[in-house]
Design a protein around this nucleic acid. Structure first.
Length: 247
DNA sequence: TAAGCGTGGTT
DNA sequence: TAACCAAGCTT
């Protein structure tokens, strides 16, 4: 599976985003900005930020209001405060070098399991596992998993699947991580997925069962006065059946 | 465990 | 056009 994904990525992946192949600092800054924020929105903010704060040290030494000024309009401003604090953590506790271990990365403000995995793989070229919206959607469809993907039981399974599909070789780390996100962003899209272009369409449970339009299931079902409920027999990881409203 | 965080894009 | 969502994390 991983080898097929790499072949797809070589020909059809995104290779020209400004934070790619620029080292762990660029990966870190971009990953924080990209949390719950779309790529096209981030790009101009990212370019201005890196121009003003080109290194961990430069960021750590900058006054906080200057850092926040670069974030104005991006939203989730705690990300900027945490990013600034984490840069100071790196200077004081890690000799100014972004750490490589998952545990060390996760001690830094604003870095959780997924961002730590992204920094390991995309930034350092080490094996790292991520779990963003793209990966969740790809895995939920591949294994036909219905229900709220954020609950702990579903998260547990999704992380195990993400671990399973991630190759052991660090040599392929960055490519695999980028490829999973690119597949979700450009092929396995929430609406109108391009299944015929997907390297996994023959293995995908959702595609095989004609469920791509119903997976992943929406967080909340839109409230409408009268809904004809149509049971599709979608099941979550606990084998609970989920229904979907038909218009 | 669930709520809160922000703005902008898409359906 | 209101709902839903976007490279999640913290408390």
């Amino acid at each position: 599976m991983a080898a097929r994904l790499r072949d797809w990525h070589r020909d059809s992946g995104r290779h020209d985003l400004p934070w790619q192949r620029q080292g762990p600092y660029a990966t870190w800054v971009s990953e924080i900005m990209l949390q719950q924020t779309q790529v096209a929105v981030v790009i101009p903010y990212y370019l201005r930020f890196m121009e003003s704060f080109p290194s961990v040290t430069a960021l750590a030494e900058a006054p906080q209001d200057q850092v926040l000024a670069h974030w104005a309009g991006l939203g989730y401003y705690a990300r900027a405060r945490n990013l600034h604090q984490a840069a100071q953590q790196i200077v004081s506790l890690f000799d100014g070098e972004i750490p490589q271990s998952l545990d060390s990365l996760m001690t830094l403000k604003g870095i959780g399991r997924s961002t730590a995995g992204a920094i390991r793989s995309l930034g350092w070229g080490l094996r790292g596992v991520i779990q963003d919206g793209n990966v969740r959607r790809v895995l939920a469809r591949l294994h036909a998993i219905a229900g709220d993907l954020q609950t702990s039981s579903q998260q547990h399974v999704l992380w195990e699947l993400a671990e399973y599909y991630t190759p052991a070789l660090g040599e392929h780390a960055a490519t695999h991580t980028q490829a999973m996100m690119d597949l979700g962003a450009t092929v396995c899209k929430r609406t109108h997925p391009r299944c015929s272009d997907c390297p996994f369409h023959a293995d995908c449970q959702a595609h095989q069962q004609g469920l791509t339009d119903y997976l992943p299931t929406p967080k909340k079902v839109k409230k409408r006065p009268s809904v004809e409920w149509f049971v599709l027999g979608l099941r979550d990881i606990n084998n609970r059946i989920w229904c979907y409203p038909q218009a």
